Amino acid sequence: MGSTAVGIRNGLSTLKPMPNETPEPQAICNDVSRSAIFIVATIANDRDQEAKVREWCGDIAALVRAVGKRVPAGNLSCVCSFGSDAWDRLFGAPRPALLHPFRDIGEGERRALGTPGDFLLHIRAEHMDLCFELATQLLGALGDAVTVVDEVHGFRYFDMRDMVGFVDGTENPTGRAADEYTLITEDPGFEGGSYVLVQKYLHDMDGWNALSVETQERIIGRKKLSDVELDAAIKPSSSHSSLTTITENGKEVKILRDNMPFGRLGAAEFGTYFIGYARSPAPIEQMLENMFIGRPPGNYDRLLDYSRAVTGGLFFVPSATLLEELADRDPPSVTAAIETHSEPSSPAEPRHDGSLNIGSLKGISQHE
């Protein structure tokens, strides 16, 4: 092994690589936990507040260690990532080669849309109290510099089931394959980083539960009880598993999912928080295009007849090494910041106001 200056690691690595060594990644490939908190926040459009967020980047690892040390077996971790606009405002050039705003896909009710968000915190642990305490410490350190626009508390549902009753994440890569599919190796200065795309889905559980198990299985493409994939002869090409399978040069391109169910009974809110990591946004965006538009167009994912995406965001995950270094990054010039803030949005990538319009899915229109 090469020589490395080592710090205590607990969920967010603080390894300091020596020259010519690969930067240590954040805790992207950690095992699925029993609890998680997903926080999406915006950053105040103020130079002093932006400087506060930059400085905070160097404190995240220490906060994870401080909270996690109290319950070592709790496997506390945190992954911090930044959106395209926030990267330009906070750090400027150089920037990750493939980072861009979330691209809206589809139309009408069947639509994946981008919603406000400058950074994402993905906090995981075996116990919710650890997640909650870390979230409290992380946000408390930022104060008025940020505004939380979406917060979801997720939980493991029985044997890794999603809210619609099927096992989730079956095809996740593991071990070295997980690193291969998630960690960047060919973008100089950003090695060990990743891209992450998130969406909050709400489900019409009354409509879904009215379906027969056989119909549900054909929509998902797997057996509900055993999680065995349906035989190719009977699995519809519109099934969720069919449309989210991407191949390139004869090889399947995988992403790493760490989805979590969530819900509020009093609000009749039942959902799944989708989170996918990959070394490029392209395969996740292709999956969404297949789902929302169809492959071919019109042959869309029938799960969307019972599920609606109400948020969407694309973020870059710097390596743990780079995350700490960003605390000392010189701010972009005032001229560059003004140009960034004044650039009009592309028609293909519309921006949305701060309202996420999230609510119950009772009464969502159904497709026959």
Rank of each mutant, 00 (worst) to 15 (best):
V310M: 14
G7F: 03
I105Y: 06
Y306K: 13
A232F: 11
L314H: 14
M1A: 10
D85W: 05
G83R: 14
R34H: 04
V64Y: 02
G68Y: 09
R218Q: 04
E368V: 03
V146P: 02
I364W: 11
S13A: 04
N30G: 09
P101Q: 02
R47C: 01
S242C: 09
A348E: 15
S345Q: 05
A41K: 06
P101K: 13
P94C: 12
E214Y: 01
D330R: 10
K362M: 07
W56D: 10
A282T: 07
I275P: 00
T311F: 07
V196H: 05
P188C: 04
N249R: 07
P347T: 11
K16N: 02
S33N: 12
L243E: 04
Y195S: 06
I37V: 08
G175P: 11
V228K: 04
A278F: 00
V334D: 15
N10A: 15
S307F: 00
P236Y: 04
S365T: 07
A93G: 04
S81L: 15
L120T: 13
P72T: 13
E21Y: 06
E289V: 14
Q366T: 03
A125Q: 01
P331H: 03
S33K: 13
P188K: 14
A177V: 14
L99Y: 05
D353Q: 02
L256Y: 09
H153D: 05
F166H: 02
E248Y: 06
G74C: 01
E180G: 07
A337T: 11
D187P: 13
D85T: 12
P331C: 08
L130Y: 08
D258Y: 08
S33L: 13
D144V: 11
H122F: 05
K52D: 05
F270W: 11
F292V: 14
V228R: 00
A62Y: 05
L76W: 15
T136S: 00
Y201P: 00
E126S: 00
C80D: 06
L90W: 06
S360W: 04
Q216S: 10
A51W: 06
F270V: 09
K362Y: 14
E214S: 13
R124N: 03
D144M: 00
A233V: 01
V148R: 08
G276A: 12
D85M: 03
T42G: 04
L304M: 08
Q137N: 11
V196A: 11
I8D: 09
S81F: 03
T182D: 04
M205C: 13
I255Q: 01
G58N: 07
S81D: 15
A282W: 09
T115Q: 03
